[in-house]
Design a protein around this nucleic acid. Structure first.
Lengths: 351, 351
DNA sequence: TTGTACGCGTTATCAC
DNA sequence: GTGATAACGCGTACAA
């Protein structure tokens, strides 16, 4: 099957190539009737312009990219939808691309900029620290929306929107401490040194230290799972270990709601009640926390607001309307059914 | 900032363009030392080949595409990972692209074939019926993996892998009937006429008719939600309506596990027990069904097996090793905690 | 083993 | 308003 090109269309229409090009790209300098005719032929023949050729030649693309790190990001769909709305409002096109765990999102970005003549990039998720050499090579505006934390250095070379995981994590632990819990286990994530999981773990430690409560390493569990650390499966497995360890605790802080669901299941299977025997707290604020039984106490990230701000910030940067900004969004502690006062009976073994 | 091209690299190295090209593309006809030197310069300068130009020129691409319809497909991540493994085994590249609800996946495919010189396509999800004119234009092998049903016509023009939703749905309803339920409500999906949701609804009706049980329209609820019909939110809302309607029922069949979770929550809030008062059955077999309390009885789709077979089938087609196939995968009814015998007390209002 | 020259399909820049 | 024609950056015959 022969590929049909713009030349074929021009020949068929008895016009020049540029006229066809003008018709396709809604150029003003073209007779309406000519355009109608050309478009008609295009429809009949089923001609499809070759995007590689277009990208190669085009100078102005009105296109941005959204790079998503991690295929299982639970905020994925809502964030994308919000960004897309903003993009359409600005009459831009948008390409979305997943970045594998082992890939460097900056490399992917660099490649894509060349290929598609991008005007801007949004990075969703991923590491919160980057090679500044590579950062310097990105010659289009970009915004990191890590749902993580702020990189301290290079404040003037990029923008980002983030939740301060370190602080928010402390907020949750303080809440549990205020309820009277002193033996709080944590299900964290330890696959990458610079992940949000580590920040949340640090927040946990900080909160305990501030209250002068000893940090018991036997209460710290770190999921090691490259592919999908924040799974119910992993939460379940960790909680099983925790329960079997014989170490006393009255509350569990799972650093992701998915993990918390697994934890709840394990506790339930052990014949214990939530929150009467053990309190469980999550983090993220995703839908499942609202519909699970018991409903999950969690840190709810302002995903929608962040996504909207991220898109707006990027367009402001593209239009040269503003300098780089670093915006921290406060998250909300949502108190639901899965947490309560500690049960002294749970400490009988330990004393 | 000037874009650096292959010419610049050639000049810097004091070699010809083709030599650089050969170095990049691992061509055999090149001196090892020359190659080393070229690669070194490329690394130093941070040169990145322009993919648009490469795609334009290239004839053999060893690349396939995976088009995913619907951003919220719950099988998404596991399916992709399995396909990717197969693709890597064959030393192919893979591009993934999301297709919006309002887009036609065939149009997206047509465009992508031209742009990237694809060798094959996998369609994940989406409608199970397509414009045969457009199908004919796809001049590369493709496999639909609808997790839906088989299109009857054009058996020789394409391949697909599927679960027979019509039959599997009957399986679940028959199971509930065997438990003794006669008043079974269904939470279905009615946004598109040719969706899997409609097939599952038809299966429900068929099963009831086969047992000569009257179909009560008051027990049929159809979610109308373009963006994301299979959400917990929607299941919850529908179940609330059902409970408020005053119409008697002893079981609910939600045609997706996410819907079932919402249904469970609504029943729980109404002060009723699952399964003692009302049985709830789901469909899909996703992780949440295993970790929810109560654990969900569901139809578990053989997602992994399907994904693997889909990829293998595509490569066989590409290599001309086989004709088009239509493969139906049997799903498994997993009996868990959320279903049991009907509670006669629930029928008191009705008689 | 290496370099030169052409063409992939399109858009931008000119003349007309 | 329209049509030639020169790029865009790269791969690849073909010549060297």
């Amino acid at each position: 099957m022969e590929e049909i090109t713009i030349k074929d269309i021009a020949r068929r229409c008895g016009v020049g190539i540029s006229t066809v090009s003008r018709a396709i790209n809604n150029h003003p300098d073209i007779n309406t009737e000519t355009k109608q005719m050309v478009m008609q032929v295009i429809r009949e023949t089923g001609y499809i312009p070759n995007n590689s050729a277009r990208n190669l030649k085009r100078t102005d693309a009105r296109c941005i990219a959204v790079l998503i790190k991690g295929i299982t990001n639970p905020f994925f769909s809502s964030v994308i939808q919000i960004i897309e709305t903003q993009v359409q409002k600005k009459k831009y096109a948008m390409v979305m691309q997943h970045v594998e765990a082992y890939e460097d999102e900056l490399d992917v970005a660099l490649e894509l900029i060349k290929e598609k003549r991008l005007r801007g990039i949004i990075f969703l998720g991923g590491a919160y620290r980057h090679d500044s050499q590579k950062l310097a090579k990105l010659n289009v505006p970009f915004v990191f929306s890590t749902i993580g934390t702020v990189q301290d250095e290079g404040a003037k070379t990029y923008s980002n929107t983030a939740v301060d995981d370190y602080t928010e994590s402390q907020k949750m632990v303080n809440y549990l401490l205020d309820l009277g819990h002193k033996r709080i286990a944590i299900i964290a994530e330890g696959s990458a040194a610079e992940s949000v999981g580590q920040l949340r773990l640090e927040g946990y430690k900080k909160a305990l230290r501030d209250r002068e409560i000893e940090i018991d390493e036997r209460l710290i569990y770190e999921v090691k799972d490259q592919a999908d650390p924040y799974s119910m499966q992993n939460g379940y497995a960790m909680a099983k270990q925790l329960l079997a360890s014989g170490v006393d605790f009255t509350a569990v802080f799972a650093i992701a709601d998915f993990l918390a669901v697994g934890v709840c299941r394990a506790i339930h299977e052990a014949g214990l009640r939530i929150p009467e025997d053990i309190s469980v707290a999550g983090y993220d604020g995703i839908a499942i926390g609202e519909f699970y039984t018991p409903q999950l106490t969690t840190i709810k990230q302002p995903v929608e607001a962040m996504a909207e701000k991220t898109a707006k910030l990027l367009f402001n940067l593209i239009e040269g309307k503003c300098e780089h900004e670093h915006i921290i969004f406060p998250a909300e502690l949502v108190e639901r059914e899965s947490t309560g006062k500690p049960n002294p009976a749970m400490l009988s073994r330990h004393g």
